[in-house]
């Protein structure tokens, strides 16, 4: 086992416990872990932008020109246009000149909207409308398949009617009374089933994160108890010892306060 592996695994285990300590209440250990994550992420991203984007996608392409001519003698001169637009964004820092940054933003928004509107309309509206309806127009779908098969005719009718009812729930130009109340209630049920499915998956997702952290802590234990890391093990025990003493102190304080409140 290499020292670096041991050290990083131990740091990971320590930061895991620091983060989990927030479940009890906000504290300096959690704050330290939180600030570390934010700082490391920002620093890492700045380096990634420089090394993975600006160097290969801009400077390397202008490399045949000379920087002291501002690359105007480069054969791929047109790359200076996006570079200039990027520089214009920095005028956001000046109150007087910040209007200049609106030009690249406007250009970007225009391109993004022009690109997105037809494709989003096709992929997320037309395709979905087609998918919601096509199951019910083919008679063959109604025979030989289970109701739990999402492509079966009956399932398609439920999905089609459910979609209409859920949409109707958000239609406020008509009072939801009589038949419309029934449709709207059916819409709520459909929405609740959808939210329930999402909630179930979300719970699974959150537990998965915790499970992975348990696995990491287990790895750390395995690393610490094998090999010659006596000194480090002692050091980290000391660190975790402080952590545990603090946690016990807080628990005792909590129950003491609870007792005082109950008496008063």
């Amino acid at each position: 086992m290499e020292w670096s592996t041991f050290l990083w695994t131990t740091l990971g285990a320590f930061l895991t416990l620091c983060t989990f300590s927030f479940l009890y209440k906000d504290n300096p250990f959690y704050k330290f872990a939180e600030h570390l994550v934010v700082g490391v992420s920002a620093g890492y991203f700045a380096l990634v932008l420089w090394h993975q984007i600006l160097i290969p996608n801009l400077f390397a392409r202008l490399n045949d020109g000379d920087w002291y001519f501002l690359w105007l003698n480069s054969a791929q001169l047109w790359y200076l246009i996006p570079a200039a637009l990027g520089v214009m964004m920095w005028t956001r820092f000046s109150k007087k000149k910040s209007w200049i940054s609106r030009w690249p933003i406007a250009l970007y928004m225009g391109i993004a909207a022009g690109m997105a509107v037809p494709r989003e309309m096709h992929a997320r509206v037309i395709e979905q409308l087609h998918s919601a309806m096509r199951g019910i127009i083919d008679w063959n779908n109604f025979f030989g398949s289970s109701v739990f098969d999402t492509t079966s005719g009956i399932a398609s009718i439920i999905i089609f009617l459910g979609t209409l009812a859920a949409l109707f729930y958000f239609f406020f130009s008509k009072e939801h009374s009589g038949v419309f109340k029934g449709i709207s209630s059916f819409g709520i049920w459909i929405l609740m089933i959808g939210f329930g499915a999402s909630f179930g998956y979300t719970v699974m997702g959150r537990i998965s994160l915790f499970v992975q952290r348990i696995q990491v802590l287990d790895d750390w234990t395995a690393v610490s108890w094998q090999g010659d890391h006596g000194g480090f093990v002692f050091f980290w025990f000391l660190v975790f010892g402080v952590f545990i003493v603090w946690a016990v102190f807080e628990i005792v304080k909590y129950f003491k306060n609870k007792g005082t409140t109950a008496e008063s």
Binding site: Q128, S131, I159, G194, S198, G205
Partner: peptide
């Protein structure tokens, strides 16, 4: 998991 339920319509289509 959080995204799971939202992706099923794309599977069906």
């Amino acid at each position: 998991g959080v995204m799971g339920a939202d992706m099923y319509p794309y599977l069906r289509s």
